[in-house]
Nucleic acid binder design. Structure first.
Lengths: 137, 137
DNA sequence: CTAGGGTCCGTAGCGACTACAGGCTCAACG
DNA sequence: CGTTGAGCCTGTAGTCGCTACGGACCCTAG
């Protein structure tokens, strides 16, 4: 019985499936240096192990949390060079959190404008439509 | 004394300045059909009037409110074909508002994860860093 | 008459993928 | 053993909404 997440010998499709990402994303991350180049079979097929999977999962999770690939690259480089300190991670997280909060504030303003305009809409004439009025600024 | 927003004869830079967008955005919108092609001088310079300005402002405002250019194109087409009804505008706005709210919900989840992890961080060992723990999923 | 700005055009770049074309390899089935 | 179909390989182009750039005109002031 094969392990659910085999430690070595995964091909690209299996790695993607285990990590829950698109097949081509794996190759893309390799191309831009987010994943190391894996060893290959004689025929040139990539062979991934659990280390690759962990790294890919880290990248994907950080993406889910809204970090850019450049920010993630920074975190990975810290780790790769043994310079990873909790304080540094916290600093970068705080910066990112501020960006997330700014974005939320933006969207809430947008939501307000749209919701107010929609609520005012009485299905009347186009000329007096509050939504179009909001859109016209 | 020239009018602050001259009704005709604006060049591209002036239109962009009046609308508050980047110079090149004007040309881009024309290229993708969001703005009509304006008349030209003998030398080929574009000449915009108040109608162009109003349309450009509409597009920019809708962009600020998070509509995609395709969505805006749809609204403009309704208007251009005289099929613009308040009910239809309301329907599209409601759809967009739902997307905005979904995005806010996404970001709030992200904010929660990051804030909780950051609050738990005690500056301890990297191996136990709650932020990296959150990032590892 | 020349210098400087503004305008013209097409094209390339960003970020983060996704999709495709054309060719190889591999496992299974007849 | 041959064929078929799936999976893998590569490079390239497309997405969205701009922004930037290069090289050629044009227009005005000094």
């Amino acid at each position: 019985m094969v392990d659910h997440v085999p430690a070595r010998g995964m091909q690209r499709a299996e790695l993607a499936r285990c990590a829950g990402c698109h097949l081509e994303t794996v190759r893309y991350y390799e191309k831009i240096g987010m994943l190391p180049e894996p060893p290959r079979t004689a025929a040139g097929y990539r062979l991934y192990d659990a280390g690759h999977l962990a790294r890919l999962r880290f990248v994907l999770r950080a993406r889910e949390l809204g970090f850019t690939l450049e920010e993630i690259r920074g975190l990975l480089e810290l780790a790769d060079h043994g310079k990873l300190t909790c304080a540094e991670v916290e600093k970068r997280t705080a910066r990112h959190l501020a960006q997330v909060r700014a974005k939320i504030a933006d969207l809430r303003r947008i939501e307000q404008v749209l919701a107010v305009a929609a609520a005012e809409c009485t299905g009347g004439e186009v000329q007096t439509c509050p939504i179009l009025h909001a859109l016209a600024g």
